[in-house]
Design a protein around this nucleic acid. Structure first.
Lengths: 194, 194
DNA sequence: TCTGTTTCTTGTCATAGGACAGGAAATCAT
DNA sequence: ATGATTTCCTGTCCTATGACAAGAAACAGA
């Protein structure tokens, strides 16, 4: 039944009993977003926890000068969510937007809470995911201090090549903390030797 | 009994029943660190969850060039922990060091797990704390992109004045992503009109 | 296909912050 | 106190990146 189900790999059978796995999987609902759709809008409280099965998305915030700053990119297997908004039930401070057609699995907050408080393995997994997001953010944050822009771009190229190939220069540049102009020059330099 | 206990404010009575509060508070152990002591060492797995009652501390990582980069500062009421190491049971990538005498309340991992899995309010509180740390890191991270160094320093001055007063220039500078030289100049500029 | 719009590239010039070095000031150990 | 060490300040010069502007290229809509 669930042999090749995307979520059966997310909640794998040694950690989850068959019954738990079934309960979790049936609680999720599949949704699809078209390129450009917003999975989340700034100012609204996040209603759903999303697992991305396929597609690309990005989160972005608008800074005090009105500039659009990409704060994260999401690909297959990622959790696509504004953690703060979802868990603190507060208005989101970022938008999350599909960059291509996205297939996701969603859970509303009440359902998440029910699973979280009744299934021990689910809450361990949930906590682990949150901690992993934290460490990724921390790495990015340290990299902003210690690495020059070129290195940060090369790392993104290594870790999320599909992003570098499919996302606009400006959106990637703002994520790296540089201007589109600079990123364009960095790409040129990399295109010649390293 | 627990009227003025520091932890009774951390786990307040409307959210926690008296019995739960008592169970939680007795599970914590008070510890004291002298200035310079390490609460956490890089490479070792975090053994304790710490609440800081009083004192100052900082976390720092050593980058590829061997430079010491401050990654966070902690004051009264903060949780002092390497989240990733504690929850993923993996070696810490940072040191955490007392910058003055610190009084903390600690919980080992097994005890944390027991409370987390048996007391619903405790796991809600724990998750909330983690999410709050996440949002602080995110704000700092966005600030690194959008704000010039002077603004970042002014924000730190606003949010953690005791840090700016008591921590060495170099340690603050590395946190802000600039050199001690630059921070020294920024301070001079602020000392004259803004 | 033509046309308008967005995205990307490149140039020139300006500027924040880094590297390095020397000196002053504070802190510490004996 | 005295010297040693660390921390902090300041000067000069340099580099990475930003701001702005103008083309080129890609793309979207009729």
């Amino acid at each position: 039944m669930t042999e090749a189900h995307f979520l059966s790999r997310v909640f794998p059978t040694p950690s989850f009993s068959a019954a738990e796995q079934a309960e979790i999987i049936t609680a999720f609902r599949q949704v699809r977003f078209a390129k450009g759709d917003h999975l989340q809008e700034e100012g609204k409280t996040a209603r759903y926890y999303h697992f991305m099965e396929s597609g690309l998305a990005r989160s972005y915030a608008t800074d005090t000068e009105g500039r659009d700053i990409s704060t994260g990119f999401y690909t297959s297997g990622d959790i696509v969510i504004d953690w703060t908004s979802f868990f603190l039930r507060s208005p989101a401070r970022e938008h999350i937007q599909a960059l291509s057609t996205c297939t996701c699995w969603q859970l509303d907050f009440e359902t998440f809470q029910r699973l979280f408080h009744t299934i021990e393995a689910f809450r361990e997994a949930g906590r682990t995911r949150l901690v992993q997001s934290y460490v990724e953010l921390k790495n990015q944050s340290i990299s902003m201090i210690t690495d020059p822009a070129r290195e940060r771009y090369k790392r993104l190229l290594r870790e999320k090549p599909e992003i570098c190939r499919n996302v606009s220069l400006k959106q990637i540049a703002s994520y790296l903390g540089i201007t589109d102009t600079s990123l364009s020059r960095i790409r040129r330099e990399i295109a010649r030797g390293s």
